[in-house]
């Protein structure tokens, strides 16, 4: 069996392409669609660098075939900020030094956005458990946890006021 035509919506844009069934979604996003903000660090589901949102849920793009995303809604790191305006979470990554080399960062942002949507008030322990699905070898996670905590705090305050 040869190639299949698929249609995937990524960050609101429709990509219609022919793919071999075995093409990983991570490769599709990067090499076919040219969205290189999604990174690949292990291709066996552990490092979390490739994490994206599929239909609003954070998943590993290295553990899905592109063909499985046919007809689905995908969001990648490129789709987070609006017209170059950084999100509160992104800004707090800057403020709290939540990144160094930045290679793990896209995946962590995608996981965190989804997680906070479903759990607006996690404890530090829960944040760390959520982060256990991501490897960062630069930061020791400290700045990342702080950035997420700051975001939660700010969101709570804006709800109150």
């Amino acid at each position: 069996m040869g190639k299949h035509e698929i249609e995937v919506t990524i960050n609101g844009k429709v990509y219609q392409e022919e793919v071999e069934p075995r093409m990983l979604l991570s490769d599709f996003i990067r090499d076919v669609c040219g969205l290189t903000g999604t990174h690949v660090g292990c291709e066996h589901g552990v490092c979390g660098a490739c994490t994206i949102n599929v239909n609003g849920t954070a998943v590993r793009s290295c553990l899905m075939f592109a063909i499985q995303a046919d007809g689905q809604q995908v969001q990648t790191v490129e789709g987070l900020s609006n017209n170059h305006e950084l999100t509160d979470l992104q800004k707090n990554f800057i403020e709290c030094h939540g990144l160094q080399c930045g290679f793990c960062t896209a995946g962590i942002l995608m996981s965190t956005e989804d997680y906070l949507e479903k759990n607006p008030n996690p404890s530090s322990k829960e944040i760390k458990e959520m982060l256990s699905g991501h490897l960062c070898r630069c930061t020791g996670y400290d700045g990342i946890v702080k950035a997420i905590e700051k975001t939660i705090e700010e969101r709570n305050q804006s709800v109150l006021s």
Binding site: G45, V59, L63, S111
Partner: peptide, 9 residues
């Protein structure tokens, strides 16, 4: 089981 992100799928 694994992590939030693997449990999601």
């Amino acid at each position: 089981i694994g992590h939030v992100q693997t449990r999601n799928r």
